[in-house]
């Protein structure tokens, strides 16, 4: 009986997408011809509650995902880049309610799905300001592990398209983007919007406030925001620390999902 309940629950609980829209390296480099880079991000995501719609259906039943992201970029010229993003789940665990008020713990680990992107950028350089418009087709390749019913990877093909605008002055940075993803059945299509505002504290240090708005066609949506710190150690070595909190976390009304989350992410990138 119990395995059947667990299996049914696993089918009802959706897989939480952990993809994010930023592109390597730190979303801004390299803009020079022949430039390339690689970055590694360590990410910790913690969802506090199991929710359905706006309601918490299992308070204190949490999900914690720890993963590494390996990402790379090559810039042919300033207008054409190719990027890849490959996550590796070092450990994911979720607390699953079972009949009788107890809970059991499920785990997942292994490679996630590969994302390939082709950011096409139209740069403008003005007196005291620079920026770009971008159009980014993306492809999700289902490389993720399938160890059991609990899997962080979607394991389906997907196609995405982003429209973006960035501008920067000596003091401030602003970026916004709109992204749409569609996936093979049964995964829901997703849309997201982001607004980032940065302050260039020093030539090598930028403080940002980043906000993400995300929803899907199962009526789930999340509003998350938080600070980010970018530090350039040298021309080659760049680091970034980011924390995002879910200020609004509404799940789909048909499926239970883990929500009310926080995400912390520390990255180091090398460019050449």
């Amino acid at each position: 009986m119990r395995p059947n309940i667990l299996r049914l629950f696993a089918l009802l609980v959706s897989i939480h997408s952990t993809s994010f829209a930023d592109q390597p390296i730190m979303n801004m480099m390299p803009r020079w011809d022949g430039g390339y880079g690689i970055q590694v991000l360590a990410e910790n995501i913690h969802h506090s509650d199991l929710k359905k719609g706006k309601d918490v259906i299992a308070s204190g039943h949490s999900e914690t995902i720890q993963q590494l992201h390996l990402q790379g970029v090559y810039t042919w010229d300033r207008s054409v880049r190719l990027t890849f993003k490959l996550p590796y789940v070092t450990d994911a665990r979720r607390e699953v309610p079972v009949v009788g008020g107890t809970k059991t713990i499920e785990h997942d680990s292994g490679w996630g799905d590969l994302t390939l992107a082709l950011p096409l950028k139209k740069y403008f350089n003005l007196n005291q300001r620079t920026g770009n418009w971008s159009l980014t087709p993306q492809l999700r390749v289902p490389l993720g592990n399938k160890a059991n019913d609990y899997s962080i990877a979607k394991r389906v093909w997907g196609g995405g398209l982003s429209l973006g605008y960035e501008t920067e002055t000596y003091d401030f940075y602003f970026a916004t983007s709109l992204t749409a993803w569609t996936f093979e059945s049964p995964e829901a299509a997703e849309w997201s919007a982001s607004f980032d505002l940065g302050w260039n504290v020093r030539n090598d240090l930028q403080l940002l406030w980043e906000s993400d708005f995300k929803w899907d066609d199962e009526d789930a949506f999340t509003l998350s925001a938080g600070p980010a710190f970018y530090w350039r150690y040298s021309d080659r070595v760049h680091t970034r620390l980011e924390w995002k909190h879910d200020f609004v976390s509404h799940m789909g009304s048909d499926r239970a999902q883990y929500g009310n989350g926080d995400r912390i992410n520390l990255g180091i990138g090398l460019v050449y």
Binding site: M29, R31, D33, G35, Y170, Y173, N200, D235
Partner: peptide, 17 residues
């Protein structure tokens, strides 16, 4: 004088080239 060069981090490609 380079138009658009307002950020050291984005401009490191200038030094590279």
């Amino acid at each position: 004088y380079a138009k658009g060069f307002v950020c050291n981090s984005c401009g490191i490609g200038i030094r590279i080239h």
